[in-house]
Design a protein around this nucleic acid. Structure first.
Lengths: 351, 351
DNA sequence: TTGTCAATCCAAAGCGCTTTGGTAATCTGG
DNA sequence: CCAGATTACCAAAGCGCTTTGGATTGACAA
């Protein structure tokens, strides 16, 4: 059942049927209704590829992620993808995921030239990445999750990672901590850098020199949380507060503390950034985990809307958002205990 | 840069250029090489939509999952998707994920008629689902992850869930357990049913009547593992062996046992099915978890290959696989302790 | 020399849709 | 009653590719 046979069936021209189905005003209401009825009765669906060829639009938005295998097993990415695809579906768009193996630039060029997708959602961009320059040269609209420094204006959605760490660090400071560690994400990711800077600034604002050994970078896994916590607590002067980049990491920290016999919320304070991942519930942890919070799934939803706006001609300036994060206080953070014998720093302040 | 301008540039007809690029034999080797060189130098990429319209093939395989939100947050699904997309990319196919909201049948019909995808990969099918009958009516090739009873032959890949539970139950029996619980998946899923039947048969084979209270169905979450374990252990005659449908569930069981002061591997034996999920490592659990094992990611890879074969005309009979599972014995399973005072059943047999 | 055949190449007809640039009929107001 | 608007429809020209069904050439055997 294609347009031609449907139009013959109706005794109309393909033009009129097409225009009726696409909501043009130059077709009589009565005719439109007749066409719509026939189309649904006969189960007519316009051939997507013909439509795409004729219009030059595919209603498919591509999601690309550079690192191949690693990305798809990261719950952060997945939850983001869930939000994106859900909202895209609601707006009649499909999501095409393409696992890029090696040459990212080449893959983007290919996608742009092939015309399979109307726009690209870029994820997990590294710092000092030339991908933005490359995309600028292509005609394909794109939006980035996160921000990286660039001479160009581009569409993005990011959360306020810098502000999150400022808030988190200040909270620890207000509780009286001075030895505050930052268990950060991978060193080459922009969000990690923003977090590190927020941490540094908040400390310096309180007159404390950031201790380099208290800043650790790595993939946000349970494993790394565990390793970092063990290493930090083995320092001659261990931190009393640990700020983690993810709840997953924090769960590794909890495990390390349990092994070391450290009581979280008294011996050591722990907090993390909570992306609201489906399998990790900070409020159910023992003790409940203090977090800065911003659901990554919601970011996916919003980015679907934004990228579709972009396709429809919205200006780049209208497609730039930075989301603030909430600070949710729970039992994993408390004033430090001044242990006799290891009294370094102290709790001069009270919150 | 399209075919026409490229062919003008070369002083050849579009026909010849097209045929050269697509490897037809009726073009001189020298010409072909000249065309290929020019194409890569000028960065020519055939327009995907024009190609699709002309050939009727899209090289896109659709993945559909009925349950909307729940699915994308399930690590099992994600890891499967990772394998699928990786292998599909290697075979020059893209993956299109469409989150279906409400009417599944309608959505499939739409996909089939639109021609966006060459085939569909069906996941998470419920028992007594009419989706197979529906797909049979469509011309779109499809393959199912799992098996559900049907009058038709259809392509599928499944693991031997029945055999897995037979193996697991027999292991527990050989260790001397007689009160063996099955913490199964959702009741309306075919794999859960197969597992329940395997459990039942293995017990009956040993002359033991399956105790209905020992069979629990539910989503394979940590939460449910915890709840089921608490409930089972609160029975007047609690089981001494727990077989879980997933490592995730088992981690909930571990938590429950810790709380109850039960020592896993002596007070109670625990095992699970291991899909080889990236964030759940049974060998690192404490104690290491005995499992039946079959990487779900590998299933995704293989299904990509199978569905592409199917598109290329392979017979349905050649696209049916059932994978055996490995049994990996670790410290979480051991002979039961005959507690004085609650001696019900016993360890008559030795392995 | 002539017919045959393989080797190369190409014109033109789609694939199924949208969109441009109309035409014909009907409706206005003067 | 007529010029100009308005309304409702449609023919035909693409979109950029593949594929069918030749056409052309030169080699080779008869």
């Amino acid at each position: 059942m294609n347009l031609k046979t449907l139009s013959e069936h109706l005794g109309l021209s393909p033009t009129t049927v097409s225009r009726a189905l696409n909501g043009y005003s130059d077709v009589a209401r009565e005719t439109r209704e007749r066409v719509e009825r026939a189309a649904s009765e006969l189960g007519y669906r316009p051939n997507a590829n013909a439509k795409r060829l004729a219009t030059g639009r595919s209603s498919i938005i591509g999601v690309s992620f550079p690192t191949g295998r690693n990305m798809l097993v990261d719950p952060h990415f997945i939850d983001f993808l869930a939000g994106l695809s859900e909202e895209a579906a609601a707006l009649d768009h499909d999501i095409l995921i393409s696992a890029i193996k090696d040459d990212v630039g080449e893959a983007y060029k290919r996608m742009a030239a092939k015309g399979t997708v109307d726009a690209l959602v870029l994820l997990g961009l590294h710092l000092n990445n030339d991908v933005l320059e490359l995309m600028q040269g292509l005609k394909l609209p794109f939006i980035v999750h996160g921000r990286i420094p660039s001479d160009f204006a581009y569409a993005y959605l990011d959360i306020d990672n810098h502000g999150a760490l400022v808030q988190a660090t200040r909270l620890m400071l207000q509780l009286g901590h001075t030895r505050i560690a930052n268990l950060d994400g991978p060193v080459n990711q922009s969000f990690s850098k923003a977090r590190a800077e927020g941490w540094r600034e908040a400390l310096q604002g309180a007159g404390i020199t950031p201790e380099p050994a208290y800043l650790r970078h790595g993939q946000m896994t349970e494993e790394n949380g565990y390793i970092f916590a063990r290493e930090l607590m083995a320092l001659p002067t261990p931190p009393t507060a640990l700020i983690c980049s993810s709840v997953i990491m924090a769960s590794g920290v909890y495990r390390a503390c349990r092994e070391l016999g450290l009581s979280i919320g008294s011996d050591v304070s722990v907090m993390a950034h909570d992306d609201d991942l489906p399998l990790f519930y900070p409020e159910r942890m023992d003790p409940p985990l203090t977090v800065t919070r911003s659901p990554i799934r919601a970011a996916g939803c919003e980015m679907a809307r934004m990228v579709i706006n972009l396709i429809n001609g919205a200006s780049i300036q209208d497609c730039q958002q930075v989301w603030p994060v909430d600070l949710i206080f729970r039992a994993s953070t408390a004033p430090p205990i001044s242990k006799p014998g290891s009294a370094v720093g102290g709790a001069e302040k009270n919150s």
